[in-house]
């Protein structure tokens, strides 16, 4: 796959939530190329997070189609494996599991097999080192600062060498200093690892880091 080919492509993507009777997305068509850092901006409730969940195959679109490396996601039978092997998630609220250390939290994606391979542990330690968290591997996540928590989340997202990181408001719970540090870190990952990043945010600073911005308003793509 060359860098011009899209990692994700959507065609007339729509999502309707019957429970809230709301159209989260309507007719969204876009493409994200391999190695791209794309910022998705828009007001709260405009459908930004829904776009991420659709790309990850966590929910199915009401209409339209999503392609991952030109294969329709709807036809991928094992969506769990698809997510595990291709997608890393970074959330605004971190979702680290209290009572466990930073290293253990980073290793959770591997634990479903019942045992964490030694290679995964070595890799997790290297990732934490790379994200300047090497000195905190054994610390319980409760004692981490917000910035450190988000870095632990990024390490967790990178453990399986995903093709793409889907980040949902990763700076939303951080002060401006830590927020900037996380954006710089994601940029570095994007440049050094060529990991595609789709980052949903309100943060105005993202324009300085993303290759391009996509604006969604009321579930529709706004072309600026």
């Amino acid at each position: 796959m060359n860098s011009l080919e899209p990692v994700f492509r959507t065609e007339n993507l729509s999502k309707y939530y019957p429970l809230t009777q709301s159209h989260a997305l309507e007719g969204v068509s876009l493409a994200v190329k391999k190695g791209e850092f794309v910022g998705v901006k828009g007001p709260s409730g405009c459908g930004k997070s829904t776009l991420l969940y659709l790309l990850a195959g966590l929910i199915a679109p009401t209409a339209g189609q999503i392609y991952f490396q030109e294969k329709p996601v709807s036809r991928i039978k094992d969506k769990v494996r698809y997510r595990r092997e291709n997608i890393g998630f970074v959330f605004q609220d971190f979702y680290l599991y209290p009572g466990f250390s930073v290293l253990q939290n980073v290793l959770f994606p591997c634990l479903y097999r019942g045992i964490v391979p030694v290679a995964a542990r070595i890799k997790a330690e290297a990732l934490l080192d790379e994200l300047r968290m090497g000195h905190r591997t054994g610390a319980p996540v409760e004692v981490l600062s917000a910035g450190e928590r988000q870095r632990a989340c990024i390490a967790r997202a990178l453990l399986n060498d995903p093709e793409c990181i889907l980040a949902d408001e990763p700076t939303g719970n951080l002060d401006s200093h830590n927020g900037q540090a996380i954006l710089e870190m994601l940029k570095k990952i994007n440049e050094q690892r060529k990991t595609t990043i789709v980052l949903v945010t309100h943060d105005e600073r993202v324009s300085a880091y993303a290759h391009r911005l996509i604006h969604i308003i009321d579930g529709k793509l706004e072309h600026k």
Binding site: A56, R81, R84, G88, D93, Y97, P109, Y112, N160
Partner: peptide
Amino acid sequence: KKKFLAILLAIGWPK
């Protein structure tokens, strides 16, 4: 721990 479980599902744990 439902949020944590949801995250496990999101990061590729089989149901």
